[in-house]
Write a protein that binds this DNA or RNA. Structure first.
Lengths: 207, 207
DNA sequence: TAGATTGTTAATCGATTAACAATC
DNA sequence: TAGATTGTTAATCGATTAACAATC
């Protein structure tokens, strides 16, 4: 294991490997080769091996990777064993869809707190999470020591929400508002801009 | 304009430029420099100019880019002037959120048809779209000559839905199911795997 | 041993960035 | 002309892939 920075693209693929291993594991597969893993995801086996090699040597030459072992290693690498609690701001259509998205809990990630400006939504429940008033944002984040926040509010208020989240102690933001958030260096922002997906398909059809 | 293939990363940024120009345009801005455009999006001005240069020369040296002119060029490049009709398969939480997502119509993209397996949802309306039965999938796609499909169904049925969409004439798929779709070379698939976003934040917090 | 598959090096390919002549 | 900003070349940086020795 060399001390080289991991490519950003590798980090994007690790979750795919992890989820495919979960699937194989549930089907009783005990050992998998980089070829089989890659084929299941449309990724070359060379790339699978290279990606994993940034973190250690998890396979056996001539044999392959033990599924349960590699899963545990990926859980550790991805930090999924932290069982992060996540706060979601904005309980509109998209926010509700995220809360009810089944995929997160299987990954040790849990949207535990939801905030919304609409008083009708406050004091009700959404999935497993209770909905709080926007005024309680800072308190909810601080009191529960939450590090990950999701922004699913209109663009106009996204920056303000980000500032408040960070003020409360949030270190990583998943931003669905189609706007560039200005945050300090130590805050990680991941933009999930849904219209890019559809526009890029339009582009490919036209070219 | 050289005959070089455009980087995939450039295509991802064009929608950002376009939307930022829309915003500036609505604020009455008539001319914008690559520096201003880039600063608004967190992208270096050099990259803005390079990206645009793959498609032509849209600016004036010493001056900048005329907002309305560059917007029109980007509309053409991105194919937004085609006013694509889009079919959405799966009217669950995520599907509903997508239909109600305001950002698409402003871009000349319209989710006009929605299909779902649940008979209760069929014959009702969702946004502007009517909901059809899954059995009508092929017919809806073919009759309306639709090229873009969105898959928002559970993973287990995603491949089958993809096959049917393609059979009906779909050429581009926006896939929200966390599974690798197997399609022929001429079909463009864009995966939008929502759990990757959250997992990658977990990764960055742990490293 | 023969066959399979890993981990890693080196080569290739692709994307970003710096620098600057062209020009408004 | 002086200042600003584009479009483009060349250099740098980063990611993928091919090839293969190591080894089960």
């Amino acid at each position: 294991m060399k001390n080289i920075t991991t490519p950003a693209t590798t980090v994007e693929r690790l979750p795919l490997y992890y989820r495919y291993l979960q699937k194989m594991d549930s089907q009783g597969v005990e050992v998998i080769s980089s070829k089989e893993l890659g084929d299941g995801l449309g990724i070359p086996s060379t790339q699978v091996r290279k990606d994993l090699s940034y973190y250690g040597e998890f396979g056996r030459r001539g044999v392959g990777y033990e599924v349960s072992d590699l899963m545990k290693n990926l859980e550790r690498i991805l930090g999924l064993d932290n069982n992060w609690e996540v706060v979601l701001v904005g309980a509109g259509n998209l926010g509700q869809a995220l809360v009810n998205y089944g995929g997160f809990k299987k990954l040790g990630l849990d949207i535990s707190y939801v905030l919304d400006i609409d008083p009708d939504k406050v004091k009700s429940n959404l999935g497993n999470a209770q909905v709080y008033s926007m005024k309680e944002l800072r308190r909810v984040v601080t009191d529960n020591d939450i590090r990950i926040g999701i922004i699913a509010v209109p663009s106009e208020v996204a920056q303000q929400v980000a500032d408040e989240l960070i003020d409360g102690g949030i270190k990583a933001i998943w931003n669905f508002a189609p706007i560039h958030l200005r945050v300090s260096e130590d805050i990680k922002v991941r933009d999930e801009d849904l219209s890019i997906g559809l526009i890029s398909l339009s582009y490919y059809l036209s070219n």
